[in-house]
C-alpha cells in the first residue's frame, strides 16, 4: 500500500461554462497561484489524468462527450465540479438547453462553488480531491471499488 499526498494530474473539460471558470482553472496553473509547485499538471489526455475538472453545466450536446471522457479515465478517478454552473446549473438553470449540473451524467466527488470560482478555491478543491483519490486507491487494492460501483448503479436502477 502506498499513499498519495500530492502530484495529481488534472484534466480540464469545459461543459457549457461561460469561460470565467476555465480561465481561472488556467490561472491556477500559471505563476502567482502556481499549482505546479504541488505537482499538479494539466494534461490533455484523459487516460493519464487522475482528476477531471469540469466547468459549466451539462447540455444535450456535450453530455455524451463528458460521459466518454469520464469512461476513458483509468481507475481510480475523481471528478471535481468547478463553479456554480457545474454544481447545479447556476444562473443558466432555467435555460431550455440545460440539463443541470455535472452530476446529471457522471458521479461528482467535490463541489467548488463560486461565479467564477476563485483560483484558491479551485486548488482547495483539487487538494480535497486527492483525499478522495486516496480512498478510492485503497478500495481498488482491496478489490471493493468495483463492487461499490455496482451497488451504485443498482441503486440508481431502483430509483428509476
Amino acid at each position: 500500500m502506498y499513499k498519495i499526498t500530492r502530484s495529481p494530474w488534472v484534466m480540464h473539460y469545459d461543459g457549457s461554462s461561460c469561460n470565467g471558470c476555465d480561465i481561472e482553472v488556467l490561472a491556477c496553473l500559471t505563476p502567482v497561484y502556481d499549482a505546479e509547485r504541488f505537482g499538479i499538471i494539466n494534461t490533455g489526455d484523459p487516460m493519464q489524468a487522475d482528476i477531471l475538472l469540469i466547468t459549466g453545466s451539462i447540455n444535450t450536446q456535450n453530455a455524451p462527450v463528458v460521459k466518454q471522457i469520464y469512461s476513458q479515465m483509468s481507475d481510480p478517478k475523481v471528478v471535481v465540479a468547478v463553479g456554480v454552473c457545474a454544481c447545479t446549473g447556476g444562473v443558466f438553470k432555467d435555460c431550455y438547453n440545460i440539463l443541470g449540473g455535472a452530476d446529471q451524467v457522471i458521479p461528482v466527488d467535490v463541489y467548488v462553488p463560486g461565479c467564477a470560482a476563485r483560483p484558491q478555491a479551485i486548488i482547495d478543491g483539487i487538494v480535497k480531491g486527492i483525499g478522495v483519490f486516496q480512498e478510492r486507491l485503497e478500495k481498488l487494492e482491496n478489490g471493493t471499488l468495483k463492487q461499490e460501483e455496482k451497488e451504485d448503479t443498482e441503486e440508481k436502477k431502483e430509483e428509476d
Binding site: D14, S16, S57, Q61, V65, F92, C95, N97
Partner: peptide, 14 residues
C-alpha cells in the same frame, strides 16, 4: 458547434 449552447436569450421570459 453547439457544445456550449445554453439558450440564455430565452431567459428574458423568466
Amino acid at each position: 458547434i453547439g457544445f456550449i449552447h445554453r439558450g440564455l436569450e430565452k431567459l428574458t421570459e423568466k
